[in-house]
């Protein structure tokens, strides 16, 4: 690789739109007191499922939905960045606030709205006295900074095994309500699994597809375009 040319002699490079969005999201959350944590893409079933209160026989654990590793029973490609929730709590004590950007995998047939690999950002805040009010405040501030000051958010009931209650977060962007994020209060079983005291601590978690944020933000018609290695995708 030749780095002898001075910067003036060469054209400025570009970053992939997913990187741009990740950078923007981490910047906003850092201002809100979050650190960034990372974790493995090839994960054991304990961290990807069991510790997150996903029962052994849960439909998500079918081979139709999850990529299992050949000849390595008990290992999968992570289906969400939530595995890092567990890994982080196993090695850190509360209070803390983290976000986790990363690549995740689902065994689905692909079309303009679905891809086998995509990017997520996960958030986890744990401490004493953390409530839904903090979750709402954090997400509202985040979406206003990301999408504009007049952005509104709305919570609807949802379900994920590792939270209770669970929410769908909808944002009003360019006068349209879109579902953009899953969230919830950390399920006490998750705290028990990492040796935290669920009587003392509460917390909230959220996760959103970064590809979806990119597509919404820039109006991109097909999620698969991001992974073609095609520079025409990097228009920003």
């Amino acid at each position: 690789m030749d780095t002898s040319q001075t910067k003036n002699e060469i054209q400025q490079g570009t970053l992939h739109p997913l990187t741009l969005v990740t950078e923007e999201i981490t910047r906003i959350f850092t201002q809100q007191g979050f650190s960034v944590a990372l974790g493995p893409e090839l994960e054991d079933e304990y961290h990807n499922f069991d510790a997150l209160n996903v029962p052994k026989d849960h439909p998500a654990r079918d081979m139709q939905d999850t990529f299992f590793i050949k000849d390595r029973p008990g290992y999968v490609l992570r289906t969400h960045t939530s595995n890092v929730q567990i890994r982080y709590m196993e090695t850190h004590s509360a209070p803390f606030a983290i976000i986790v950007p990363g690549k995740v995998f689902r065994n689905e047939s692909t079309d303009s709205g679905h891809e086998m690999q995509f990017h997520q950002v996960e958030g986890l805040v744990v401490g004493e006295g953390i409530t839904v009010e903090h979750m709402k405040g954090t997400l509202l501030t985040f979406f206003k900074k990301l999408l504009g000051e007049n952005t509104e958010i709305k919570l609807r009931p949802s379900f994920f095994p590792f939270v209770e209650p669970g929410f769908e977060v909808w944002v009003k962007f360019q006068n349209k309500w879109i579902e953009i994020c899953g969230a919830g209060m950390v399920h006490p079983n998750v705290f028990k699994n990492v040796g935290y005291d669920p009587k003392k601590l509460t917390g909230f978690a959220f996760g959103m597809g970064l590809d979806r944020v990119v597509n919404v933000k820039f109006n991109i018609p097909d999620v698969r375009l991001a992974y073609q290695g095609d520079l025409r995708f990097s228009q920003f």
Partner: peptide
């Protein structure tokens, strides 16, 4: 890298040959 004139791409994790395979996949 971007400052040094490089443009970022992202490719698929899945490929034809490697050392680790998924059991049921593309």
């Amino acid at each position: 890298l971007a400052e040094n004139g490089f443009r970022e791409v992202m490719n698929y994790t899945f490929t034809k040959k490697g050392e680790v395979y998924v059991a049921y996949g593309p």
